[in-house]
Design a binder for these strands. Sequence first.
DNA 1: ATGTAAATCATACTTTCGGGTGAGCTGCTT
DNA 2: AAGCAGCTCACCCGAAAGTATGATTTACAT
Lengths: 141, 141
Amino acid sequence: MIRRALFYGLLLSILLAGLKLVQYYFFSYRIELEFYIGIIAILFLVIGVWAGSKWINSQSPILESLDSITINANELLSEREMDVLAGIARGQSNQEIADCLFVSLNTVKTHISNIYMKLNVSRRTQALAKARKMNLITEKA
Amino acid sequence: MIRRALFYGLLLSILLAGLKLVQYYFFSYRIELEFYIGIIAILFLVIGVWAGSKWINSQSPILESLDSITINANELLSEREMDVLAGIARGQSNQEIADCLFVSLNTVKTHISNIYMKLNVSRRTQALAKARKMNLITEKA
DNA sequence: ATGTAAATCATACTTTCGGGTGAGCTGCTT
DNA sequence: AAGCAGCTCACCCGAAAGTATGATTTACAT
């Protein structure tokens, strides 16, 4: 969570710094300000779309609600396991979940194994069925 | 698709125009340029995330039509395909579904492939997520 | 009749999943 | 300090799932 926020914050800072450099050394005296701002706006719009696409399947509660899947807090599964379960519920592959959570495929597998143990199942679809019965997963209205 | 692109293009244009106005009439002489650009960058980043999320969630033509048109769910998937989909939703393996329906494993695979084609997905968990969104699958007491 | 869609089954191949095991690191508790 | 739970990652192997293609049969509509 925090690591991801820091990562993108850093990325944003770097981009801003880069833009400032570009501005001072190359463009400021040759391109009009409106055009320059337009480029920045479009650039960050694209970045935003990219980040949004990448995050839409991640575990943030806000984005989760956009995906109409809600993971309910529970004592049984740990936070990370809930994240993984949400990915499964969204239909993501293990690799996709790993990419979203910024961990390795093996880590996701381990979490999933633990989920299966805790839910007493042996397949992701079984885990989904059981999790829904237990109200761990609910559909957003 | 095209309509959506036009919509967001228009939105972008309006926002750019608005920013230009703001720039000329309020901020240009009071706030430093770097700060101003940073605000724009963040603003469009947020817009991008929002738009990206929205876009991702309405990728499917089927889901789009659900917004305005009432679709008879039974039209899309055949009876047998619904049987198989139910098995998937129950968490059954392909072999278990085959046993339940008294058909071969290959037949189940074929049905599943057809389901994936019709739902435009490539994994059973994706099929579940999509089918739930389309209300092909609903929870019962 | 001819075509279309559904259902059935098959073979061959690739990718993904899941099980088992081990291990290092962190943070909290006793 | 020691123990424990959670998170991370790795490797191996077999099973399940998915892809691609082709084929037969039935039923229904043009």
